[in-house]
């Protein structure tokens, strides 16, 4: 059921709107222009000096990588902070919860549908990012690390948006809270980044650790969101079936209350 109804419905509705192809085109256009400008500037520079500055090719890789990471961190909550609130506003959440779907089906379906869309955006920009391989200088570990960091950041930012959407009634409040969480996480990350030399941690190792931390936090956040969608009340823990006689048996056909 994880890739079931909610995932299919959300992907269908998301892809039916014109916004996604427009954003996809705009994003890749901006990246392409950045690469072209960089190539042009490197060519002009080498024509003047007679040296090819290879490190400037790597600069594009780092720039696009960072911009995409920021897009993920900002775009994830934007796409998910309305996921549950909009179901509430349309009053479809109650209907969904009366079907065979469980809260985990709903949460994971929504998470995966947005995650797929973000991965589609990132995947479409891979050819632009790959121009750096013409000149070399990027190791396989760094490529894998970037892919992993993208995936972990995407799933984390989506999970934060969904959790916030589960806990808040309005989309605006959910978006605000999810951005606060994202910026707090970014702050924590930069703190580690600036002190990585004092901590004597290799940059790659620090980033692998960040990926693992993001995944763990995502798991906790998803669990909290699922709990929030469960029915409330003191009877929540009750699991046994009581026989009818014990529960009161047959009731009289006509009764009148005390007030009557």
């Amino acid at each position: 059921m994880i890739l079931g109804p909610i995932y299919k419905k959300d992907v269908l509705l998301m892809n039916r709107s014109i916004a996604l192809p427009l954003f996809l085109t705009a994003m890749n256009a901006v990246f392409s222009i950045l690469v072209i400008i960089n190539l042009y500037s490197v060519s002009m520079s080498s024509a003047e000096t007679g040296e090819i500055p290879y490190d400037r090719f790597l600069g594009v890789y780092k720039l696009i990588g960072a911009v995409e990471l920021i897009l993920i961190l900002l775009g994830g909550p934007a796409m998910t902070s309305s996921s549950i609130t909009s179901e509430r506003e349309r009053r479809t959440l109650g209907i969904l919860l009366t079907t065979q779907l469980t809260p985990s089906d709903i949460i994971l379906g929504k998470l995966l549908s947005v995650f797929t869309t973000i991965m589609l955006l990132l995947g479409s920009s891979v050819p632009i990012l790959m121009t750096v391989f013409i000149y070399g200088g990027v190791t396989l570990e760094q490529v894998l690390l970037l892919a992993c960091l993208y995936a972990c950041s995407a799933v984390y930012s989506c999970a934060v948006g969904i959790a916030s959407s589960t806990y808040h009634q309005s989309t605006a409040a959910a978006a605000a809270v999810s951005y606060i969480c994202i910026f707090a996480s970014l702050g924590l990350f930069f703190l580690c980044w600036f002190f990585r030399w004092e901590l004597r941690v290799r940059t790659e190792s620090l980033l692998w650790f960040v990926c693992a931390a993001l995944l763990m936090m995502t798991a906790c956040i998803i669990f909290m969101s699922m709990r929030k969608l469960l029915p409330t009340g003191k009877g929540r823990q009750r699991k046994t079936i009581r026989p009818m006689e014990e529960a009161g048996g047959q009731m009289p056909e006509m009764r009148e209350g005390k007030d009557n």
């Binding site: 109650g94 919860l97 009366t98 029915p231 409330t232 009340g233 003191k234 009877g235 929540r236 009750r238 699991k239 046994t240 079936i241 009581r242 026989p243 009818m244 529960a247 009161g248």
Partner: peptide, 22 residues
């Protein structure tokens, strides 16, 4: 009855099955 809320007290039996379980 739909299982979206649980009561604080009392029982709800639907075809002899208690709401909240099964």
């Amino acid at each position: 009855l739909l299982g979206l809320l649980y009561p604080e007290e009392g029982t709800v039996l639907i075809d002899d099955m208690e709401a909240g379980s099964h």
